[in-house]
Simulated scan of single mutants.
Amino acid sequence: MVDVLIAGGAVMGASVAFWLKRLDPALDIEVVEPDPTYATSSTALAASGIRMQFSDPVNVEISRFGVDFIRDFARHTGPAGEVPDLGFKENGYLFLASTDTGAATMESLAAMQRGLGAGTRVLGRGELAEKFPWMQLDDIVAGSLGSRDEGFFDNMGLLYGFRNAARAAGVRFVRDRVVALERDGDRVAAAVLEQGGPRTAQAYVNCIGPRAATLMRTAGLDLPVEPRKRTVFVVDAPQARHPDAPLVIDPSGIWFRPEHGQWLAATVPATDGPCDENDFDPEHALFEDEVWPALYNRAEGFGEAKVVRMWAGHYAFNTLDQNAILGRNPQVPNLYHANGFSGHGLQQAPAVGRGIAEQIVHGDWVTLDLSPLSLQRVLDGRPMTEAAVV
């Protein structure tokens, strides 16, 4: 028997393991991950951004911790992490509003975010035009810009740093898949591995991303999480070279940001819904039908844009409210959740890993109160609304 068994070894599972060893070096921990290359993990296929601009204070606080951790990653993980820097590029995020109501909401949220340490400011159309002269802004009233502590970083560096440091501290990473949880009343009695059979532990942590609900059903439990496919396009636009541009969230529903002289761009499909767990085929038509017209409407420099590459990844989509589901399961108290991030998991991994570890070791949240994101709200049917979902 081990002390803690973590199902899923991408960034969330590795972060939980890292923090558990920081809080209690004596813990015996196993992380079970079927693919050590992480080829189809949400971590590897993420757009790798972090922002303060959320509408709920708990998400802002999670990001506040996360950006400080990312900025000073090597100090936190030490030489054992083997990642000297995450290459944080502080370009910011820019949310554009096309209505006066949207602009007023931005002002209110910016004040809340600044109160929690963010640098958010709301710019009118004229200020936006002066700062971003390459944009077409006739339909825009205002924009909310994270002028600091927002941007892009090395997604795999974050994962490998956590994993390397955890492994150096004695965590075992096992190549296998947790396919079922066996229950004995109100406790998980064992995790069943595809190759290794039953494994027993004092505590179990579900960190398996878009497949989280599938695992829960094996124990007769429900979780409102499903895989949703997102196609990301790498776009070359010779007349639109703006390497210092922020990640822009457009009222049309697309987002785009610079990446090594090119651009990343994506949108939520009009027919968005659950996808097969093994479907990673990009939706090619989305670019011509939805993404390119919106890009060109925002900046004429995208008129000559062409797709040079594309990929599809999966969101672990929380159908209740698109926010994370965290912590101890009140129905099965030796089971813990880090699920349902709906596209925000990478940036939230440092704070969430620490929080889950605190619950396991100390019995409750300690550094940040993450109770608004607990499973209890799901059981009660109380969604925690987050307006700034990308």
Rank of each mutant, 00 (worst) to 15 (best):
S252F: 09
L128A: 11
D35W: 15
T385P: 13
L247G: 00
P224L: 06
A111V: 14
T267E: 11
I140A: 06
L379G: 07
G102Y: 03
S41G: 13
M112A: 06
V4S: 06
V389M: 12
G345E: 02
L373P: 11
A46M: 00
P293F: 00
P274A: 15
I254S: 11
D276E: 12
F317I: 00
I29F: 02
W255P: 04
P25F: 02
R241A: 11
A110K: 04
G151V: 06
V2F: 01
Y160Q: 13
G353N: 02
Y204H: 06
V366T: 13
D139G: 01
V122L: 09
E30M: 14
Q376W: 03
F95G: 03
T37F: 04
A349Q: 00
T367Q: 13
D222S: 12
K229H: 05
A324M: 13
D68R: 05
E300K: 15
S108A: 15
A212Y: 07
R187M: 06
L45P: 04
P238A: 10
H76K: 10
E82V: 06
Y204V: 04
V83W: 05
G117T: 04
S252M: 07
P269G: 11
L109A: 12
L221D: 12
T120N: 14
I50A: 07
V389R: 15
N334Y: 12
L86C: 08
F302P: 07
D3S: 14
V366C: 04
H260V: 07
V361K: 06
V225G: 09
C207Q: 00
R114K: 11
A212K: 01
W255A: 14
G8K: 00
G303N: 11
Y296S: 05
G253L: 13
Y315P: 07
G92T: 02
R183I: 11
G381H: 05
T214D: 12
V31Y: 09
M156C: 02
L373H: 06
A265V: 15
D139Q: 04
A237W: 01
D279W: 13
F280S: 01
V11G: 07
D176W: 08
F280Y: 15
H314N: 09
D184T: 01
A299I: 11
V234A: 04
P198G: 10
G119P: 02
R354I: 02
A245R: 03
A357N: 04
V248I: 14
E226A: 10
P330A: 03
R199S: 07
N339M: 10
C275W: 05
L193H: 02
D184E: 09
E288F: 05
A7C: 14
V308I: 10
M135S: 02
T37A: 10
E277L: 15
A357H: 02
D72M: 01
Y336D: 02
I62L: 15
G220H: 05
V225F: 08
F88P: 02
V178P: 01
